[in-house]
Design a protein around this nucleic acid. Sequence first.
DNA 1: CTGAAAGCGCTTACAG
DNA 2: CTGAAAGCGCTTACAG
Lengths: 342, 342
Amino acid sequence: MKPRAKRKITIRDVAELVDVHHSTVSRALSPNKRDQISPAVVKKVEKAAEQLGYFPNLVASSLKQNRSFAVGVLVPDLTNPVFPPIIRGIQDTAEAAGLTVITANTDDEEAKERSALKTMQGRSIDGIIIATALREDPIVEECIRNEIPFVLVNRTVDRDDVNAVVIDEQFGINSILEHLIGLKHRRIAHIAGPDHTSTGHERAAAFAAYLNSKGLPSDLIETTEKFTIEEGRRGLRRLLARDNTCTAVVASNDLLALGCMDEMKELGMLVPDNMSISGYDDIQFLERMNPALTSVLVPKYEMGSQATKILLNMLEGKSTSPVLQRMRPRLVVRNSTATASR
Amino acid sequence: MKPRAKRKITIRDVAELVDVHHSTVSRALSPNKRDQISPAVVKKVEKAAEQLGYFPNLVASSLKQNRSFAVGVLVPDLTNPVFPPIIRGIQDTAEAAGLTVITANTDDEEAKERSALKTMQGRSIDGIIIATALREDPIVEECIRNEIPFVLVNRTVDRDDVNAVVIDEQFGINSILEHLIGLKHRRIAHIAGPDHTSTGHERAAAFAAYLNSKGLPSDLIETTEKFTIEEGRRGLRRLLARDNTCTAVVASNDLLALGCMDEMKELGMLVPDNMSISGYDDIQFLERMNPALTSVLVPKYEMGSQATKILLNMLEGKSTSPVLQRMRPRLVVRNSTATASR
DNA sequence: CTGAAAGCGCTTACAG
DNA sequence: CTGAAAGCGCTTACAG
């Protein structure tokens, strides 16, 4: 026979059972106040709590402490395969520290970002991890203005007084270019991501710089509007319209690369026979594709996890000066890149 | 010059500015209490709130109302490609109704499920959407016992007094079997998902029933422990060890099918030449694989969205009797299935 | 080591 | 239509 009135068990019920003041119960149950209470009482309180099936009301606790033990995460779109591993890294690390994670999709729309931020603020979020940053980002500015602790992940902003965990893009681009040059490619093109993102911008800059340093032409850059398959197709179309001498294309991320592959197929051209193509990010299942896509693996889970650790430090009042952490990616060679055909 | 003390603006600050009682502000700002207040005052309150940059403290509101305007979601693992679209469907629908979504990964471990549920209860979650149900599920029982409104999605339990949005598995299995039989396959095998999941169980049952109804052998069923690539490999290995006459394999989901493809490759056998293979779920990028995997598309986003709508109805006190909603999947034929080779 | 009191920022019966 | 009061379930100075 279950209790019909499902009134919530509170700290007062526990107090009554043990016959102490409810503030004593609060202390006994709080890991860092526990030592203010005699072990005997702690024991009794714990037993009573257990017995009554008590669990703390985090909402009340949040209101009083003016923090919610929750962190927000802003991603463009959960169904973009780059993000799930990043989010998982965030969640695992946050939950291990007792924090709940609230994720919002922004679809790269500022209105949605603002609304998500507002909701999170209303929930007294402790901090926020932002995977949506543009190089000039009003939402980031807003977080700074409102003194919300935040860490950027994957992309960063142009200003350098923020915490961010990103990729060593130069290393990543260099490693793919080295690989292609080793395969005798001399005319290499770049399908660049949007220039208003740090990833798009830095990868394109690294691309040009490396080729210049090798005395190779670096003019074959087509910049896209978004990191999408469709934009990859259009980018490649534009590229081929103005040049038909290049033998390899470095795409700024995997989705753009997949778009390039689609366009090649549409044109009846073969990858890698007629053109080598590489991606960036190394999303799931590339090894199963036809052809398997060569890519630059970015440690997505670790980036998320690392960003969260930094945020946790901030919340604990440690780590004062802003940190820009660059993680090293790793080239993964597959079948979409091969020896230059001419 | 920004205000240094970033004390939060409260309803009282707004009240003071307009010179009314703070309860009046509360009413004026509440969509469903607004009409108790004279339009003139509402206007003034809104303006003052705007001017002060007031936004409501949802934590306080939650505490008082004993609901949090948040719903929980339990998934096994966010990085499993089936789930992001489901979650996105949930989020979009929930957010449109003003609810925040909190997602937790359980890795199919009961301990993690319990802990997630406890956290969510502590946060006074309004309801919960469960994508992790087993046919006999202690967490579901717990939700029932604690009278937490919940809706199951993708999988359901054996008891029928719950709300669930799942797939018409019989339709899905029939459509793939029809397709294979049309391709002259007569010895068809099934790599079944875990029997303790409704999906694994129902698909296997539908498989046997349909073949029986056509007078075809239905004994070639290998049951796996988990819906994973690795289990798919092992399942196919076991199958081939006991039978070498079958020409087609229906896998209970895409990951199992991918495992079957891997094992075929390992054995030096060709798909579909030596064996047709089909998946189920239709996760992202199957069309790009080598060979492109024939699958049964389940409307993932819509399932999530539909489950959320049902939950919203429950929260509004509508919809009393439990609903089992079955959504119709759709066969997507690709290159991994072809005419039987013998 | 423990208790009593105040208060976090809202909402909502109860009056008027 | 508006105000005054009480209270949601905690936490935490302040006493002792």
